[in-house]
Simulated scan of single mutants.
Amino acid sequence: MAIITELFYLPPIEYFVAIQHEKEIFLDLDENYQKQTYRNRTQIRLANKVETLSIPVIGGNKNVKTSQIKIDHSQKWMNVHLRGIQSAYGKAPFFEFYFPYLEQVFLKKFDLLTEFNRELLTVCLKLLQLDISVKNYDQTIVKSEIKDIRGVINAKSGYAERDIYDALPYSQLFGLDFVPNMSLIDLLFCMGPESKDILIKSQKNH
């Protein structure tokens, strides 16, 4: 019950649907970094639009391994992201309960993108009460025994094209139209302890 994945920034709900029944996640940090992906961007829902939050990185060309990508702290992205999350979810039912756990990670000011993303992933798993251990993948691990979803969940194609996530609507803060597959924090802030149950029900062919 193990899975190999990329490491994303506050991943979309689809990602957690894919990993929820596993015991171990192996993160591939030796892959070549790819721009314009979930590795450094996430989506939240504001009053009248979906907002993409993107972490600026230094370099990030195709020949650099993901494990070596540094966050560009010369840009004031952290305040923008924290304010964006507060603006989007400040009135959500579970915001006050969950936000401090996330804010704590942001304020640590990590140099490496992977360290920041990994800590946020660990917090998300904890808030979901999913008992999954997170490890680094290396070539000595026998792939045949592990589910490999690298390259499957990507920002350039819709979740509906994949056989993972069947969006179950839940109460979002703004508007009548449900917007699926936001960052997991959309689900956590809006639904709290029910989030785990919604993940289970959102699995295709569950």
Rank of each mutant, 00 (worst) to 15 (best):
R45G: 10
D138H: 13
T66F: 11
T37V: 07
D30K: 05
R83H: 08
Y89T: 08
R45I: 12
N79D: 07
K135G: 03
G90A: 00
K147Q: 14
K65Y: 10
Q129H: 08
S144G: 15
L120V: 01
V123S: 04
F106A: 12
L82E: 07
N79Q: 11
Q86P: 12
T52C: 09
K62N: 02
V50D: 06
L46R: 12
I69W: 03
T114E: 05
A88I: 08
I55V: 15
E51D: 14
R150Y: 08
T66V: 10
Q43F: 03
I141A: 11
Q86W: 11
N136Q: 08
R150V: 06
C124Q: 04
E96N: 14
K109T: 09
Q68S: 09
D72H: 05
L125F: 02
F106H: 11
L113F: 00
L112P: 00
Q34G: 00
E119I: 01
S157G: 01
H73A: 14
D111A: 09
F95G: 10
E31Y: 00
N117G: 05
V50G: 05
W77V: 05
P93Q: 07
D148F: 15
K135N: 11
K62F: 07
Q75M: 06
L53Y: 08
S133T: 15
V57D: 01
Y89K: 10
L27F: 07
D30I: 09
N40D: 08
L29C: 11
V105Y: 07
G151D: 06
Y101S: 09
D131N: 13
V64T: 13
L29S: 05
K135A: 08
F116M: 14
S67M: 01
K143Q: 13
N117M: 04
P56A: 00
R45H: 14
S133P: 09
H81G: 04
N79R: 15
S133N: 15
A88M: 06
R39V: 03
S67F: 00
E145L: 14
Q104T: 13
N32L: 00
N154S: 04
E51L: 12
I71H: 06
K91I: 14
Y33G: 10
K35Y: 01
D30N: 12
L82P: 00
L112T: 06
S133G: 14
I146D: 11
F106Q: 11
G59N: 04
S67P: 00
N32P: 01
F97G: 06
T140I: 15
I153R: 07
I58G: 00
V134D: 08
I132A: 06
I71M: 06
G90L: 01
V142M: 09
Q68D: 12
D30P: 03
I141S: 11
T66P: 09
I58F: 02
D131K: 11
N32D: 06
T42R: 03
Q129V: 04
T42I: 07
V134Y: 08
K109A: 10
N32M: 02
F99S: 02
N79K: 15
A88F: 08
D72T: 01
